[in-house]
Amino acid sequence: MNTSNIKHMVVFKLHAGANNANAEQFLKISAEELTTIPGVEQFEVLRQVSAKADYDYGFSMVFASQAAYEAYNNHPVHTQYVAERWMKEVSSFQEIDFQIFE
């Protein structure tokens, strides 16, 4: 059983709303920027399809270890992304991190 992998997920709503050109641009740019950070594996952009959920989109990614996850969080591309894009364009979010049991 491998307990070192971490799946980092965040679900969110945008100030721009969902399913429009501004939202699509945010998702595209986010994927381009975040996947350049070393250690990011299996990056996915997700769209909510359940009427029961409060969020419209999600990002999911895997890190090989806690150290890789911490390096991602502290990486200059990530900190700049959070300050210049995420904090300005995301209206609400929930972040969850799981250890993957294989």
Rank of each mutant, 00 (worst) to 15 (best):
E95W: 04
Q94T: 12
P76E: 14
A51K: 13
A53V: 01
Q48W: 04
E44M: 03
S4Q: 12
D54P: 12
Q48K: 09
W86G: 05
I6R: 14
P76D: 07
N74L: 11
L46D: 07
D54C: 11
R47D: 07
A64F: 00
S50Y: 04
A68Q: 10
M61Y: 10
F63S: 06
V11N: 09
G17H: 03
P76K: 08
V10Q: 09
L34D: 07
A83T: 13
S65Y: 01
A68R: 01
M9H: 05
H75C: 00
M9D: 00
S91L: 00
V10M: 13
F26D: 02
W86T: 08
Q25I: 12
D54Q: 14
Q66Y: 08
E70L: 06
K13Y: 04
M1N: 07
V62T: 14
F12P: 05
N73F: 04
R47W: 01
S65F: 00
K28P: 03
I100W: 11
Y72E: 04
P76W: 05
I96W: 02
S91V: 08
V40W: 04
F26M: 08
G58T: 02
Q42E: 15
A18N: 10
S30G: 09
L46M: 14
P38W: 02
S60G: 07
Q25L: 11
F98D: 11
Q99A: 12
Y57V: 10
E33R: 13
Q48E: 14
E102Y: 08
N5C: 08
A18W: 08
R47E: 13
I100S: 06
A71Y: 05
L46P: 02
R85A: 12
F26T: 10
A31L: 02
D97H: 03
I96N: 01
Q99E: 11
E33G: 04
A67R: 03
N20V: 03
F43I: 08
N19V: 04
E84H: 14
E89M: 10
S65K: 00
Y69K: 12
F63R: 05
I96M: 03
K28R: 15
Q80T: 13
F26W: 12
A18Y: 07
E89H: 09
V82F: 09
Y69F: 14
A16L: 07
H15F: 13
E102P: 06
S92H: 03
G17T: 04
D54V: 14
Q99Y: 13
E84S: 13
Q42F: 09
L27D: 03
N19Q: 13
T36D: 04
V77G: 05
H15S: 06
G58N: 07
F43Y: 13
A53E: 02
H78M: 00
F26C: 03
Q80R: 15
N22D: 15
A67D: 02
M61S: 14
D54F: 11
Y57G: 06
I96A: 09
H15L: 00
Q99L: 09
S65L: 02
A23L: 01
Y72P: 01
I100E: 12
T35V: 04
H15D: 05
A31V: 02
E24H: 13
N19I: 08
I100Y: 05
Q99M: 09
A51P: 05
P38S: 01
P76R: 07
Y57Q: 09
H75Q: 08
S91N: 05
A71H: 10
G17Y: 10
I100K: 10
M87R: 15
A64C: 01
M1R: 02
G58P: 06
E70Y: 02
